[in-house]
Structures are given as structure tokens and as C-alpha cells.
Write a protein that binds this DNA or RNA. Structure first.
Lengths: 132, 132
DNA sequence: ACAAATCATAAGAATGATTCTCATTATTAA
DNA sequence: TTAATAATGAGAATCATTCTTATGATTTGT
């Protein structure tokens, strides 16, 4: 994978934004910042970087794919009210892969987990809405 | 949700097929079996049944959504070689939701997990390919 | 069983997300 | 610096899914 300015600014955008953006979001962010770039290039590079393990592509979220600068093992939580994506530590599943490999005979290379519910803020707002 | 013949045969198809099919697959299976049905109806009913909890919609798998007749809590494994989807018991994550709710303050309603790797058969075949 | 109201379907159009194509431009290596 | 290779931009194409609307099926009350 050769150097390119576009690759650079896409990667920097992902580093800056903490909101697990979609390709479309990265594209609009860069256009807004007056960088010259095309949507296809954003998709191309995000997927290429994900394939190389430089970033992480997150599936399973309603709508478009999300991309994550953080490639350390961790999970995600999607708030069903505000739509925000939060990181969840993977400390709660230590040894899980080994257990399942032993139980199934499968060779497991990776896994993803996503939680759905209400973030702390939305949970409180919803209680207010219901009780008032 | 009213009765309809189409709903019936879609649900029966999901019960019969053990392979976590896509909507498209269910549609072609039914056409092949000479049932009169349209693709939009397959999508409409699979999604409606999933919304009502009668079946389970599985996201996060490369490409299209998959649908599962089994609505008991369980996870999935996708073989990166043959593409088959296998069920994984959820017995290895007892208490996980509570732990994460306590640690984060989020209200968690559900979660999905998908493992990627090689199924037993493909793992063996790959060894053969490599060593021969 | 009948009529009226409601709901579901078929078929194709429309949409949204993503990938492809290919002519042009940038990057790399000798 | 030049040839070879790789990346980009822009729009077309594709894929999965949803929407639209006219028609047909199902339900409900009598």
C-alpha cells in the first residue's frame, strides 16, 4: 500500500473523531474541512486499512458500516435512543475464545460483540419522560 | 399480524433450512419449490416476524442479513473458508450483561456476538492443503 | 354467509450503501 | 527522470433493501 495524501487525512480524521464514523461521515467531514477527496477514495482506503488491521471495521450496526481508530480488543454498545456508539472493555470475556474452541473444535481467529440498550444519559431522560 | 399463506411458507422454510438463510435465499428456495411469492413479501415478513420476536435477524455477517428460526439465546460462528454459519452456545457468558451494566451504567437489552475462523472440517482440509 | 373495513401481496420503481470502471494523476524504484 | 506501478476522482453500476400502488385475501360484525 503506497503513501497518499488522501490515506493520510482519512486516517487522521478517524484518529480525531471519537464517534466511530461511517465512510459517508468521514467524507463530509473532510469536504467541510475543504480537503479535495472523493467518496470512493474514502471507502477504498477505510476498507484497505481495515483489511490490513490498521483500523477496525464495525458491522452489525443498523445502517452503514462504522470504522474505529482503536484496534485494541474491545466491544461496542449502541444506544437505541441517541444512536451513539460506546466502547466496552473486553476484560469480561477473558478465556472465552479458548473455551469455545475447546467445546466446538473450531479454530477461532476473532470475534465481535455488540450490545444494544440505553446509555446512562438516555436511560435517565427516558425515566423522566415516563414518570412526569 | 394477520394470517397469510406466504407468512406460513416463509416461516416453515426458516424452520426447515438450518443454514441461517438470507431473504434472497428463502425467496429462491420457495420459487424453486414452485410457490408463488415475491421478494418484497419475503423481506416484509421476515422483518415483521423478527420485530415480533418470532424469529431472529442476524446482522454483522458480511453482505446480507441472515434470519434464524432459533430464538433461544445463542451466538454465531462464521467459517471464513466455507461461509457456513454455526450456532454457538451462550453458556460461556453467564452474567455478562449484568457485569457490563454495573460497570458502565448502561441499560442493556440485548447483545450479539459472532466468531470468525475455520470450522472443524475446513480447518482439517486447510492443514491437508498446506502439508501436501 | 355478506358487506365493509382492514390488512397483505406482487411487481417493479426507488433508495441507500458500497463497489467498480477507467481515464488521469501521484508515487516509487532503477 | 523516466518507466513502471499504484492511487485518485467522478460517475456508472451493483447489491441489498424498502417503498408504492393497484389488486386480492382476511377479518369482523351482523
Amino acid at each position: 500500500m503506497n503513501y497518499s495524501y488522501q490515506k493520510e487525512i482519512i486516517y487522521e480524521t478517524l484518529k480525531t473523531l471519537k464517534n466511530h464514523p461511517t465512510a459517508e461521515y468521514v467524507y463530509h467531514y473532510l469536504k467541510y474541512k475543504n480537503y479535495k477527496i472523493s467518496l470512493a477514495t474514502v471507502y477504498r482506503n477505510l476498507n484497505k486499512m481495515a483489511a490490513l488491521g490498521k483500523i477496525k471495521k464495525i458491522g452489525g450496526i443498523n445502517g452503514s458500516a462504522r470504522y474505529d481508530y482503536n484496534i485494541n480488543k474491545h466491544y461496542h454498545f449502541e444506544c437505541q435512543s441517541c444512536g451513539k456508539i460506546f466502547d466496552i472493555s473486553s476484560e469480561f470475556t477473558l478465556g472465552l475464545t479458548e473455551q469455545i474452541q475447546n467445546a466446538t473444535g473450531f479454530k477461532i481467529y476473532s470475534h465481535d460483540m455488540i450490545f444494544y440498550g440505553l446509555c446512562a444519559e438516555c436511560r435517565d431522560n427516558n425515566y423522566k419522560t415516563i414518570t412526569l
